[in-house]
């Protein structure tokens, strides 16, 4: 694809990915075919900030994990009062990274 298009995509979506992944995504996007642009530009990515807010407000019910699609872990959190409160606190700090990894998984379906 054109570098200009790719750079635009990277600029507007960089907050959805880990910083060390962005370079790889950029190179991969330049290499792939132009026909995939329509799909890639319309992917629904999850916002790490939203996950953080949900995690702080409703983390002990596991709703942050349900939102990311980790249903099993969400049930685990729900059944144990958020892992006796410990898992809730751990997730306040790790949920943003988890969201970015989920986004990476999602975009990888189109990149390869």
């Amino acid at each position: 694809m054109e570098a200009q298009k790719v750079d635009m995509f990277i600029m507007s979506n960089s907050k959805f990915f880990e910083s060390h992944q962005i370079n790889g995504i950029r190179e991969r996007l330049i290499a792939i075919d132009d026909s995939k642009w329509a799909m890639i530009s319309t992917i629904q990515l999850k916002d790490p900030t939203t996950s953080l807010i949900v995690s702080i407000l409703a983390g002990s019910l596991g709703i942050d994990r349900f939102m990311l699609g980790d249903t099993g872990l969400g049930i685990g959190k729900l059944l144990t009062c958020g892992g006796l409160g410990i898992w809730t606190i751990v997730d306040w700090f790790s949920i943003q990274k988890a969201t970015r990894e989920k986004n990476m998984q999602k975009i990888q379906q189109f990149l390869y």
Binding site: G59, S60, L61, L78, L79, T80, C81, G82, L84, T88
Partner: peptide, 18 residues
């Protein structure tokens, strides 16, 4: 009381009491 919801709001959470 280790449950955040109960500690802050005095309302038991779905799994309180397990």
């Amino acid at each position: 009381e280790v449950c955040f919801i109960k500690y802050f709001t005095n309302i038991p959470c779905p799994s309180c009491g397990s």
